[in-house]
């Protein structure tokens, strides 16, 4: 039985500058992985490359999803396979309401026509879970949303579209305490289905208390430099990244800003 996601020797460049320098990563079915690392390490780049963001050039390496090489798959094809990414900075799309957008995509993903009424009901349930106002569905996608509403919107899309592999890029940044709790619970609930896998990028421990990762990977300067279990997360949260840099003989960075 193959892993859900397998990334091997992935090298990624923008304008000929190599941002990721040979990443290996395996995520099995039902597993939760956390990806940590200082700002600018390349975490978002990794997630976006897995989603085939055209601004990043995959210069070397392979990406497999459920055993199949998906190097040549376009972004939408990957989404159809069941890969999903919550964006660190979700884009604003004027003129399209959240509801219309999600219904259109849902039909696209499942290939089944879903009645407006049934869909409304389902959406309403998910919105209540996330403590989103009913008017939210009518508003244009991310336009004029607060930071918190945008992040919750990404989680809402995840709940509605029901993917197999979710990559969450800092789903908890810029949220107030209540919002972090709500988002954490929604994600944990989603992952209680043991067929789902998750790669979460975060700087905070709160969300990890609910989501409970099995593995941790530390990404520094485009390389995964350390792997471990929950104990590694704890140590990073307490001590930052400098001890790892020391171990590796890398230059220390002072006053690391973690967020």
């Amino acid at each position: 039985m193959s892993n859900m996601l397998e990334v091997s020797n992935l090298k990624v460049a923008v304008d000929d500058v190599e941002i990721l320098q040979g990443i290996d990563l395996e995520i099995g079915r039902g597993e939760v992985h956390v990806l940590m690392g200082p700002n600018g390490a390349g975490k978002s780049t990794l997630a976006r490359t897995i989603m085939a963001d055209p601004q990043f050039e995959q210069v070397e390496g392979d990406i497999y999803f459920e055993g199949e090489n998906i190097n040549e798959f376009s972004t939408d094809e990957r989404a159809k396979l069941g890969i999903f990414l919550t964006f660190q900075n979700p884009l604003e799309v004027a003129g399209i309401s959240v509801e219309d957008f999600l219904r259109t995509t849902k039909i696209e993903l499942t290939g089944e026509d879903i009645s407006v009424i049934k869909f409304k009901r389902e959406l309403k349930g998910h919105m209540q879970d996330l403590d989103l106002d009913q008017a939210y569905a009518e508003r244009y996608l991310n336009v004029g949303f607060s930071g918190g509403e945008k992040k919750k919107g990404e989680i809402l899309q995840m709940s509605v579209l029901n993917p197999d592999l979710v990559m969450l890029d800092e789903p908890d940044s810029g949220l107030d305490v209540d919002a972090v709790r709500i988002v954490s619970e929604t994600v944990a609930d989603f992952l209680s289905d043991k067929n789902k896998s998750c790669l979460i990028i975060t700087h905070h421990s709160v969300i990890l208390e609910s989501v409970k990762p099995d593995f941790a990977h530390i990404l520094i300067d485009g390389k995964i430099v350390k792997r471990g279990g929950p104990e590694l997360i704890e140590r990073v949260n307490d001590e930052g990244y400098n001890w790892i840099r020391e171990e590796l003989g890398l230059e220390k960075v002072h006053d690391e800003v973690l967020d």
């Binding site: 972004t75 939408d76 990957r78 964006f87 799309v93 259109t104 995509t105």
Partner: peptide, 17 residues
């Protein structure tokens, strides 16, 4: 905007759509 297209495609829409 290419990034807007990428965002929508990441949700499963084809480029044309």
């Amino acid at each position: 905007d290419d990034q807007a297209i990428f965002y929508l495609m990441s949700r499963g829409l084809s480029e044309e759509e």
